[in-house]
Simulated scan of single mutants.
Amino acid sequence: MEKLQLIATSPMGLEAVIARELKDLGYDDVRVENGRVNFTGGPADICRANLWLRTSDRVLVKMAEFPARTFEELFEGTKAVDWADWIPGDGEFPVEGRSHKSQLTSVPACQSIVKKAVVEKMKATYGTEWFPEDGARFVIEVSLLNDMALITLDTTGPGLHKRGYRKLVTEAPLKETMAAAMVLLSRWRPERPLYDPFCGSGTIPIEAAMIGWNIAPGLRRSFNSEGWPLVPEELWEAAREEAFDSVKDDIPLSIAGSDFDPAAIEVAEAAAKKAGFARDIKFSVLPIAKAKPEGDYGCIITNPPYGTRLGDEAEAEKALRELGRFALYLPTWSFFAISPSKAVEHYFGRNADKRRKLFNGRIECALYQYFGPLPPFPGKEKP
């Protein structure tokens, strides 16, 4: 089979992080666009990408891309795809859609046209007038942007942030993909301490532990494409075996988190246990004023309260003030905080070394990065 055109979809602002992930996985043909990262691979790479990508939302197969200013153009462009190469006669193939800055503005109408075109092409191939759609699931998406139609197949199913370890959540949880992105952007290494003083349901410490032990984030879940003829079971078995063999659970971790809410810590401990880190991540019920991270040259990576969803603005302001004061007592530590507030630097008393625009869900935020000194080389005395 020819190489497939694959797409790792991206939350706004994380495209470069996903591109780096793909390059670290060995993919050289990586092309970044707004909201997605394109790469090439075979059916086995559908398995590897779904198992390993930490910051992407999902992995798609690009089926076609063509101008579509009319419903006829949309119909004919979709019908030109050899759908039977992918979808068996009993396959379920719902169509999802979206349209932006295009003449075809009715998303339901576009979905209907694409569905009709796929059915017509499959009727000609399979020689039947009716499809039961009670087999494996093949979600087709039509995305219209500036009168160009992109037709894709979703290989993932539920978003990649659903790792499988978090059954309960706190009121305003941070997505696993964003937590992983914050850890990757910090360039934290497992030999350094990591602490989250607003840990909530524990997502940042758990994602850090998975990175530290090189655990593929998709190991505990299933994917739509596991039932596809073009992605046979043996490819999934090989990809999972590779992932299990790559785990480095003999590396000691110094990861901890705290929160003033006992219910949040209860959720965090349950999630850590489910993820296999019950003994390796320490959680405590503590306000940030009483938190005392152990060690030097560590990383504080945190998602302080915003005031837009939890509590009020006064509480969010208090949290940032306490975070800035907290930093004064950890001169060798680096700080990474995601917040929509413009007052973070005010409460830290200095400008961030780096700011990165990110979206936590629909909330526009910045990742404020304060770099502490690097750890001394082994054998060298601390300054």
Rank of each mutant, 00 (worst) to 15 (best):
186 S>C: 00
10 S>N: 09
105 T>P: 15
10 S>R: 06
226 E>K: 15
381 E>S: 12
222 S>P: 12
100 H>V: 06
115 K>L: 08
340 P>C: 11
97 G>T: 00
224 N>Y: 15
332 T>S: 12
144 L>P: 09
87 I>L: 10
44 A>T: 02
326 F>H: 03
60 L>Y: 05
112 S>L: 09
140 I>P: 01
327 A>D: 09
111 Q>H: 11
131 F>A: 00
150 L>E: 12
63 M>Q: 03
146 N>M: 04
354 K>Y: 15
249 D>M: 02
187 R>N: 14
48 R>T: 14
91 G>D: 02
154 D>W: 05
193 P>D: 08
203 T>W: 13
125 T>G: 04
351 N>R: 15
295 G>E: 02
234 E>I: 12
23 K>S: 15
15 E>M: 02
96 E>P: 08
204 I>V: 13
234 E>K: 14
147 D>M: 02
249 D>P: 04
98 R>K: 06
181 A>N: 05
342 K>D: 14
359 F>C: 00
80 A>M: 04
136 A>H: 07
234 E>P: 08
92 E>H: 07
259 D>S: 02
106 S>C: 05
65 E>D: 07
55 T>V: 01
103 Q>P: 14
22 L>Q: 14
14 L>I: 14
291 A>T: 04
31 R>G: 05
42 G>H: 13
365 C>N: 10
161 H>G: 02
312 D>H: 11
355 R>P: 13
348 F>N: 02
314 A>F: 12
377 F>S: 15
222 S>N: 13
314 A>Y: 12
105 T>C: 14
102 S>A: 08
176 E>V: 00
61 V>K: 03
38 N>F: 13
227 G>H: 08
253 L>T: 04
355 R>F: 10
264 A>Q: 14
66 F>E: 01
157 G>D: 11
168 L>C: 05
186 S>A: 03
70 T>R: 01
329 Y>R: 15
255 I>L: 09
309 R>W: 13
210 M>P: 15
342 K>W: 06
8 A>R: 02
8 A>F: 12
356 R>I: 12
89 G>T: 05
229 P>A: 07
111 Q>W: 07
103 Q>I: 04
331 P>K: 06
15 E>R: 02
123 K>M: 09
312 D>C: 03
192 R>P: 09
307 G>D: 06
312 D>R: 04
151 I>H: 03
158 P>G: 09
44 A>F: 05
200 G>L: 03
73 E>A: 01
202 G>W: 05
187 R>M: 13
245 D>K: 14
339 S>C: 05
171 E>K: 10
128 T>H: 10
280 D>L: 01
275 A>Q: 02
277 F>L: 01
258 S>R: 03
202 G>S: 10
332 T>V: 09
228 W>H: 03
292 K>W: 06
275 A>Y: 01
169 V>I: 15
315 E>R: 09
368 Y>C: 01
63 M>A: 03
293 P>C: 06
361 G>N: 10
281 I>R: 10
223 F>G: 06
22 L>T: 12
27 Y>T: 07
230 L>E: 07
62 K>C: 04
92 E>P: 04
78 T>E: 01
139 V>I: 06
344 V>E: 11
359 F>K: 00
226 E>S: 04
364 E>Y: 11
9 T>I: 01
179 A>Y: 04
191 E>W: 08
308 T>E: 13
